[in-house]
Amino acid sequence: MKLRSISNWLQNRATDVAVAMLTVMFLSFILQIFFRYVMRNPLGWTQEITLTMWLWLVFWGAAFMLKDRDHISFDILYLAVSQKVRRIFALVSAVALVAGFVASLPATYDYVEFMSIRRSSSLRIRLDIVFSVYLIFAVAIIARYSLRAFSLVRGADPDADAGPEPKV
């Protein structure tokens, strides 16, 4: 199906970006150690790059890479109930997440925008830009769980979006 292949393509590009972030984070940390201990002349900007990439990796990954199964969750009760009850559970989850993230979105936007008054310590990047990844994350969560709520209402299997089976 065409829509499915577009979605896969996007998923793969999101993974490329995450891999790039993790690689940059790792390399800049190694560079920092090399300059500190081998060259005895520490660089100022490596720590900031490392932390920024880590922040982006967490929210970018949580927005675009994590299926429901990848998230850390307490699934004892969920796995024990019938398919029908699971659908209700999944629907309540999705609605609660959409409600919570929508309700806090305006204030969250306001906070991120407010942070333009400050720049990062070494590279002087405006912090609203650094923190904007949280907005991307919040919007992605709202979109993903809205779609999930609609498909559940229309009778979809609650475990369809769950990703691969447990790796056990």
Partner: peptide, 26 residues
């Protein structure tokens, strides 16, 4: 010169460390 001196993590502190003649590190 060449002394790795921990200074708090902000450019203003790091500059002070360099001004003292050391290699500052946050």
């Amino acid at each position: 010169s060449g002394v790795i001196l921990r200074m708090p993590d902000a450019d203003s502190w790091q500059f002070l460390g360099r001004a003292l003649g050391a290699n500052p590190v946050p």
